[in-house]
Structure formats: C-alpha cells, structure tokens
Design a protein around this nucleic acid. Structure first.
Lengths: 199, 199
DNA sequence: GCCTCAACTTACCATTTGGTAAGTATCGGG
DNA sequence: CCCGATACTTACCAAATGGTAAGTTGAGGC
C-alpha cells in the first residue's frame, strides 16, 4: 500500500508518538528509524537534523490542531458553540491518539527545545493558539475581557481537557485499566461541563 | 550558612528544577552537580544512581503536595472550601516555583520513567492523588459520583491549575513578559472561578 | 596516636547519541 | 545509453552520558 515517499510520513508519525511519550531528549533518531524499519540516516536524509525533525513534528501538530479548530468554526454559529465543537473533536481524537495531547502539553511546558539560535524562528503552535484565543474573546463571557484573561482561560481549558488523555497510560498503571475505560466515557461530558461552566 | 549535609538538599532542589524544565532524559548528572558546585560523583554518592535521584525528587514532590493538601484540610470545614484552600496554595506557590507544576504535569504524562523493574514499586504521587480524590468525593457535588468521575475532575482541576504556571516561561517568550505578569495576577481568581464552577 | 566513617575528588570506561562521508540501487528524461 | 536526482545503506567519528574504582581529607571516638 505505501507506494513511495510514504516513508517520510511514517517517520513523522512515529517521531510524533515517541516525542510525545518520551520527550525530545528521550527520543533517539535510531529508535524512531528502527520503528519504521529504515536506517537512522534515512531519517536524516528526510529531515536534516534532530532539531528539524522536531520542528516538522510540531508543525504537523500545529496544522492538525488548527484544522480541528477551523472545522469547528465553519458556519456562523456563536463562539461558545464553536469552542464546544472544537473541544469535543479534540477529546474524541485525544482518546484514541493520546500522543496528541501529550505532545501539546509538553510543548507548552518546554518553552525552548530546538531553537536554531535564530531570534525570528516562528513559535510552534502560535498559529493555533492565537485563533483559539480569538474565539474565546468572541464569546459573550469574554467579550469585554483582556487578552490575558482569554489566554488564561485558553490554558485552563486546554490543561483541563488534555491532562487526562495525556496521562491515560500512566493512570491505567495506577488505578487499573477498567477505571481508565470509564474515564474515556466520562471525559467528553466532563469537558462539556467544564466549557458550560466557564463560558 | 549551609553548615553540613546541606549539599544533599541543594542537590535535590537543583535536580527538581532541572528535571522539571528539561525532563528526565534531558537532565544530566554532571549539569546538576555543576550547578550546585560539586562533582558528579558527589551526586552519585548521595543518590546511588540517576533513577534513584529521580525517585527522591518525586518523593519530595509528593510530600510537598501532600503537605499542602493536609494544610488545607485542617479544621472541619466543608470539602469545597478545603479544595479552595489547596488550589489557592498550589497556585500561590506555583507562580514563584514554576518547576513544581511543570514537574507534576510531567510525571503525570510520563507514566514510567525510572522503574527498577520491580512490579511492587510505590507509584510516585499516589499518596497525594488518592487523598485529593477522596476530598473531591467528599463534596456535595460528587458525593454520589463514581471514583472515576472524581478522578476525572481531579485531573481537570490539576490540568487547569498547573498549565499556566508550567508554561509561564514559554508564554513570556510567546506573548511578552507583560502579559505573563497580568496572568500571574489573574491566575488565582481564574482558579477560584474554575472551582466554583465545577463543584 | 590511631581507626573509622562520611564526604567528597580525580581517573577512567563502555555505551549511546547526533552527525558526516561515501557508496549503491533505482528510475525517469534526453 | 548515459545523466542526474531520489532514496536510501554501511562505516565511521567526536562528544556526552551514566557508572565504577580508587584515592584523599577531615572530624569524632577510643
């Protein structure tokens, strides 16, 4: 099935997962390459260096999130419902792709990971965060609020929504898989409750 | 001032900060030791290995959090107010010690980091998480709810409360230091609003 | 004075890591 | 049929890392 040049895509996927699970420094190029079934140098062939691979992964993550946000912004619905749709989509995906919220939280926590030294490098996820804040500022509740307040709310929502799926694997280890199964069912309604309460 | 054996304490502090900022794999023993001003082997002298150092750091973190929780549980106040006090103390400390929420989130995300292979190793932070969930289950709102629902709420609250302080440094880089200053002021009331809305 | 023990230090080592150099195989175009 | 580009591979390397071995220093007990 994977005709050609699928290798790059698979490398990106595997790299995303490993970077989410073990972080930048905990992920070795050799491990990623081995998972995909190619040599380490194949990886370097596609993405010049580890830092650039990391940038590519974050780029992909930003695009994924942005697309989810845009999909939720389609029609002329009120901003509250747009946020509802977005976080519903986010949690739905997060349950089956736990690496996504893990990576998101990680990036937000680890400010600078792979800076090329250049000051003008585009911040990863910035293209996603700014529209998200804009939507929050478009709600009735935050119409008159400051940018900082909208940002605080965005972080609160993201943190509240992403921590469970990101911690999913560890929680199964702590409290048992059956509790996690229950949590997967509870999570979406819990997020809706959070949004309803905060907006 | 540091008479003797303060070295161990300082090593633990510096290790906590570096582990929070850069994660387990991103933190080298040599770097921690150098920050304190001793040799790498002094570190190994006190904590047998890197994995044991990590365990010691997590132990300390768990104790810190547990103490904050117990302090908030003093008198016969209602559970709602106990949670209020705890999260107020947490955010107050988190603003000046951003490494604490960073480390907390990191540990929750990275399930297994330094397992001795033994299956019966005590889970880090478990002694803190369980009482916290118990307090949530003691509230009117969650009195009749399942354990899983209380756990979901605990994670939502922790995520919502910890993401901003943990991301503080990166946010200053993204949106400028003045926005972060505003956020530091906003954060506590935002957390109170979150608690009031969810309990 | 001497023994012991904690609290370190300098040397050293095996492994892993990111990265370079150079070679090979395949394929489409001219 | 050759040319170049793409998509890799094997070999190799310098640096960093966690960890071991052995030595040094100073204080307290006998």
């Amino acid at each position: 099935m994977p005709a050609v040049a699928q290798t790059r895509t698979r490398l990106l996927q595997v790299a995303s997962i490993r970077l989410a699970e073990r972080g930048y420094h905990g992920t070795s190029l050799a491990a990623v390459a081995e998972d995909v079934g190619v040599s380490k140098q194949a990886l370097l062939h596609y993405f010049g260096s580890k830092a650039l691979l990391y940038c590519a992964v974050l780029d992909q993550l930003g695009q994924d999130l942005l697309q989810m946000l845009f999909s939720a912004m389609q029609d002329g619905q009120p901003a509250e419902q747009q946020l509802d749709s977005f976080f519903a989509a986010l949690t739905a995906r997060a349950v089956q792709d736990p690496w996504l919220p893990s990576l998101l939280l990680r990036v937000l926590i680890e400010e600078r990971a792979a800076g090329s030294g250049d000051a003008a490098e585009p911040l990863p996820l910035q293209d996603f965060l700014e529209p998200l804040i804009a939507v929050i500022q478009a709600t009735e509740r935050f119409k008159a609020s400051s940018f900082a307040q909208a940002l605080a709310t965005a972080l609160q929502l993201l943190g509240g929504a992403c921590l469970f799926p990101a911690a999913q694997a560890g929680l199964a280890h702590r409290f048992g898989p059956e509790v996690v199964d229950q949590l997967c069912d509870i999570s979406p309604v819990q997020i809706q409750a959070l949004l309803a309460a905060r907006l």
